[in-house]
Write a protein that binds this DNA or RNA. Structure first.
Lengths: 120, 120
DNA sequence: CCTTGCCCTGACACCGATGTCAGGGCTTAC
DNA sequence: GTAAGCCCTGACATCGGTGTCAGGGCAAGG
């Protein structure tokens, strides 16, 4: 499978796949051409990568998940190295949720204050 | 008051104050030197700016708040123009909270799955 | 032969608030 | 006169995933 086909099947672009490769997430073989050649299993890997990115992981965080999948596991998150990253990200998300909740309260208070001023 | 003093009092840097000016948030007078000259009221404005930035507003969003303060109001958020921005940001924050909550659930599920595998 | 369509590499653009550096001017104190 | 410390402008760097363009190769079909 060439890069364009994999990109289509994964719902992304060749540019993006080359970026993942540049960061060590995928390692396609090369045809005599120099063209990247992917086998079907890579589709699964790319899906894993994109799901994790969508959940706010960085490319470097994702490496353990990919390694875990490549090692034959049924999912990328069932390895201890992945768990470390999962826990770190969970802490970040909790932090973010706390701060956003605070922001939300301040916003609501300020909006409330406007309405009160309008009916003095 | 010169820029360095205002920066110190506001807990920020001259660079940052020049950036706010560049984006139309503050307009200091100039000494014969060319040096920026700020009066005390600007400290209040800078605090407002920094609070809003910390709550995730962009510099453009902040303009109505500053205008509201300058118009003699007790706070930057008590004007209808500010309310529009407040409501928009509140919607953004709600969106973000929803998505982060989803992420958090996925993370917890995956962590749970690891523990289950360890005690089969 | 020429076109079309895919592939390759390398590089710049984006967004937004801030840091930082270069190169130069003013004021004050020694 | 000179050193220190503030000020000025202008410009590039940051972070991260992606778009996009330039310049060039390869393959298949007319």
């Amino acid at each position: 499978m060439l890069i364009g086909e994999l990109a289509d099947r994964a719902g992304t672009s060749p540019r993006t796949l080359r970026y993942y490769e540049e960061h060590g997430l995928i390692r396609p073989r090369r045809d005599a051409n120099g063209y990247r050649q992917y086998d079907d299993a890579e589709l699964r890997v790319v899906h894993e990568i994109r799901t994790l990115l969508a959940d706010g992981f960085g490319v470097d965080d994702i490496k353990p998940f990919v390694a875990c999948l490549r090692a034959g596991n049924s999912a990328g998150h069932v390895c201890p190295e992945s768990a470390v990253v999962l826990r770190r990200r969970l802490a970040e998300v909790d932090d973010l949720l706390d701060r956003l909740t605070g922001v939300r309260e301040r916003l609501q208070d300020q909006l409330k204050e406007i309405r009160c001023q309008m009916t003095p």
